[in-house]
Write a protein that binds this DNA or RNA. Structure first.
Lengths: 200, 200
DNA sequence: TATCCTATATATAAGGA
DNA sequence: TTCCTTATATATAGGAT
């Protein structure tokens, strides 16, 4: 996921896949070690490689067995509850992503309107006919309020400043949406929620 | 490990520990998902939190059980072999670190000698009495060879160039060694190898 | 193949809101 | 508490060796 943003999908090139496997396995086990030490918890990981019948385990076979035993002896009811873990996990991710998207759309709309407003001010004409007039006038009102507010507070003339808020451009937003729709593991895993994604 | 380089040790502050746990667990499971998808392998992770009797699992309870079953039914002999996994893993890390250290010591020695040599050339006297004369003269010989070689190849005069090879300074090397000795999880886990570390 | 390098993408500790 | 933000530390893809 560097030098090039890699898609989350099976790597067909074998040597590339193996190289990725090695690096990532190493880091994964390191991370497992870190969370276990830092937070003082029990954890284990089991990772199978393609060409070996035996998995690589962390932190040790013995410890894995200990954790597994604990896991296996959970009451059945608890187990059923835990069956939903992945779905819950993914739902959370999706909801978060959706909220971020909405937030950014709003930011972009605001930015677009701001831009349009200043164009109008400088050219004296409406440049774009495809605008939501209500929204546009709302932005203008808000901007006027801000200006008035600032003027009152400062008791000074200061010009109109457009906040540099780091919001994304429209093309960046499009990329974000595309990227989200490509998240197969989100899509495939939670069908009920996945369908909603299409309405983004 | 950002804003401040965090030591790999139990976080005593409870709220901080919980926050770290949540973040890291999320990332760990994400990573598990990624390696599984990218490399098309089976993997699972089980993480216990302090305040919950049930662990968080990835990718699902069902899949975890499938992987576990595969794991549990390994022939006993194979299991014993796998008992050594963590030790093997750590040994590899230690060996790699040791090799890097040796390499850098050599580079530093060479650099030191280079520096000394040019000081001698410019001042006309030996500045440092605590040198390994054999090593020093070897470096001089090597340098002379390089110069001769270059001259022969280029048939041009070109001055003596010291390669900018990015090797570390002596104080940086010391920091590296200190950092290595602080790696508790390396030290504590492999006693037999750990003792050798002290002789670095 | 294995290792090293390095430009980017991610993860994440602190510090607010 | 949970969510954001931001400055840094890590992870890691693609190349070079």
């Amino acid at each position: 996921m560097t030098r090039k943003k890699v898609n989350l999908e099976y790597i067909t090139n074998e040597s590339k896949r193996k190289a990725t496997y090695k690096k990532r396995k190493s880091c994964l086990l390191k991370k497992a070690n870190e969370i276990s030490t830092l937070c003082g918890i029990q954890a284990c990981a089991i990772v199978y490689s393609h060409d070996e019948p035996n998995p690589e385990v962390w932190p040790s076979h013995f410890e894995v067995q200990r954790v597994l035993h604990k896991f296996e002896t959970l009451p059945k009811l608890e187990k059923d509850k835990k069956m939903l873990d992945q779905e819950t996990f993914l739902k959370k991710r999706i909801n978060k992503a959706r909220e971020q998207l909405i937030k950014q759309r709003n930011e972009n709309m605001k930015k677009k309107m701001d831009l349009l407003m200043f164009k109008c001010l400088s050219t004296g004409t409406i440049v774009d006919n495809n605008i939501d007039v209500n929204c546009f006038s709302w932005v203008i009102d808000e901007t006027l309020k801000e200006v008035e507010c600032k003027r009152t507070r400062d008791q000074s003339q200061g010009g109109i400043h457009v906040a540099e808020n780091g919001s994304r451009t429209l093309s960046e937003e499009k990329e974000l949406v595309d990227a989200m729709l490509k998240q197969d593991w989100l899509m495939d895993s939670v069908h009920s929620v996945g369908n909603e994604m299409l309405h983004f």
